[in-house]
Design a protein around this nucleic acid. Sequence first.
DNA 1: GAGTTTGAAACT
DNA 2: CAGTTTCAAACTC
Length: 498
Amino acid sequence: MNEMEEQEHSYRRDSSEGSLAPLHHTHGSPRMAHLISHGMHSEPGYSRMEEPLREGDYTTYRILHPITGDHLSPVAHFSSSYPEYLLTAQSSHYQHVLGQPYSSWPSQEAFHYGMSSGDFCQAATSIISDGADVYSLEGYSTHQGFRHHDGDQPHALLVSPHDQKLPAETSNICQMLQPVQVVCDVTGGGQVVVLNQCSPDQIPHSLMTVVNTDSLPKPPDQSCSIEDHSITGIDAGHSETIVSTELPQTHKTSAGVTFNLTPGPYASQLHQALCPTQIVKQEEEEGQTKGRRRVKWEKSKRPCNCTKSQCLKLYCECFANGDVCNNCKCLNCFNNSEHDLERSEAIKTCLERNPGAFRPKIGSRKQGNVRGCHTKGCNCKRSGCLKNYCECYEAKIMCTSTCKCVGCRNYEESPKKKSSEKDKPDFNIYNPTRSPLACITPDVVEATCGCLLAQAEEAEKEGYTSAHAERMILEEFGQCLTQIVRSMFKSTSVQFNE
DNA sequence: GAGTTTGAAACT
DNA sequence: CAGTTTCAAACTC
């Protein structure tokens, strides 16, 4: 058996126990080594993992308390061979939480604990590496066979993407979830580890830890460290501390196969959607805030004031942030755990309308663009994009050609420009960073129409034929266009040859 | 704090 | 897809 095959067969399911039992340990796995080195922080206050331990045939990763740094039980064993890899844990604590030994779980399951179905939907959506979206979780959370109950309250949720007994809709969901092979709480204290689905030569390339603050002691400051490829917490009311993922890079396996270690594209979104406060803190330190909603959250996590939307539409920023309302001033709020059904339905509706509804509006940073850009662009008409009505401006990013704004002043300009001038929109300036059409401001249109009208009146006054009048108007229109185009090129320092 | 303005979201 | 309405935040007084 060559090395590759050996890797693939390193882990076999131990049917006698109904769990995965690695037959061979992949010694010194560079994959996990990478995961550790790039995905975890070592500073106090951050959730992290230690260097892998070696316990028999398992590759073992001990998860540390995000705040205290203490070891948290259970130890997580990562099996990284396709198609069977699983987080297993051996912990009396875990068994206490689950009421059953973790090791008895079937393979290819994800365990989700302490999160609402809507939360899980968002989490899964955000980390699916191929960009697919989870549209519904109906039936998902009612899969009794994999559910642990604490009285009437569902306490744990196991997800089996390949379980044929799942309801049809759930199966569909799980198919979509397949890229997320494992989503599980490995501590019983609220930590969640997410592993994207791997081929034999891929590592799980997203890994995060979410701390359930209901279960953990709260230190004075629970801020977490966020790297560029940060990930996410779920419910700000319950999940607070997040760790980052790894830096993008490729890695060559011992089998000589190169694979991409780049984090899943939605890993950061998950983080952003679910841990807005911490992200903003970090970004504030970096002198940059991205995204209106995160900026708002950063402002002391201000409560919403919704009165008519029941906080179940994207008008509500709590809802749009993937958060439940907490200490808000809203009326008739349904965005809470007491209305999980309605909330899940609303999430489903939003996602049906717009699969990217819960993705951050401020997209990934372009090369050379430190701040990123608005994914949809703004549509401001009267604010000159210089007030917080403008999502670009509020996110402290410049408008781009994606924007459809009118009279935009939110663009790169000379630092010598007087600050007083910045405060008022200028409808007569062309923004070279934006769409060429952006220069056709209301004033320009009005002036052009005035010119054309004047020509028409002159033709009428002179008694010219309609054909002549039409020609005059067209000629005038041509001159107007010439001036507009000239001004455009003048602004961009491009030669304009008439 | 009330009223107005604004632009995104939702609706038609 | 465009136009209109609804909505809640931003802003002004």
